[in-house]
Amino acid sequence: MKEIVVLSGKGGTGKTTVTASLAALAKNAVLADCDVDAADLYLLLKPEIKETFEFWGSQKAKINENKCEECGKCEDVCRFGAIENFKVNPIFCEGCRVCYNICPRKAIDMVDTLSGHWYISDTKYGPMVHARLGIAEENSGKLVSVVKKAAREIAERGRYEYIITDGPPGIGCPVISSLSGADMALIVTEPTAAGLHDLERVLKLAENFKVAIKVVINKFDLAQEKSKEIEQYCISKGIEVIGKIPFDEEIVRAVSKGVPPVEYSSGPAAEALKNVAVLSFEGVRIA
């Protein structure tokens, strides 16, 4: 079983569109949406939820007013600025338990928090694991780990050939969790100054993991010069660019219709996406 995780560094380059196209073309795959902050893969794959699970991601401190003598020690020791006027602001509490350990009146409890939900669903392309992080909740990295673990178990049990994962943007904690254990990182970039800058950063991160790395340039024809610059950069790094997808309004229409572009259109972008899928599956098989 091989896992392809689709990443980008910069947001909005087309990760989900690429992931959905891979999902639609893979014969034997489990699908996972690890962009738990802003999960969008469901819009194209239309999952039918089979099982819902609660995600108890963290603990937060809570001050028991009846026991609290307002000595203020908890506020002094909290390094996250989460305690003010003998009240805990759950948005800033990181669950470190320092206040709980230090309170002389034992007036602080650590309370488990429901930080989100995750789902096992069916789609016409295969089983899908996805999640929704609660509003203003932290620990998206942990929820990513939960989603990935469930996807891997389903893939092992059902002897699926691939796991195809839609990753989060950035290079922070949920991205690190997404990369963990993957066989290939497929990085979708765009021919812009920001796209290149962010590609460089996410590549540096991915190089710390034992993953094969491939790059796709989306909307490459909107800025041919920048596109060439990105290709040159990848060559200099010894990284293969396995696809260049042209700008094509058919993609926007497919997304608006809620259909993976490779199923909606046979235009130039859809054809390029098909090619990317073929090369990704080939690439990960030998990874």
Partner: peptide, 27 residues
């Protein structure tokens, strides 16, 4: 930063006004 979790909240917390930028797609 994009998203709705800790980095985004740390950035917008305490602002007097927030401009949310979007695009007219289902995403």
């Amino acid at each position: 930063p994009p998203g709705t979790s800790c980095p985004m909240i740390s950035a917008v917390y305490g602002a007097d006004y927030c401009v949310l930028v979007t695009e007219p797609t289902p995403f």
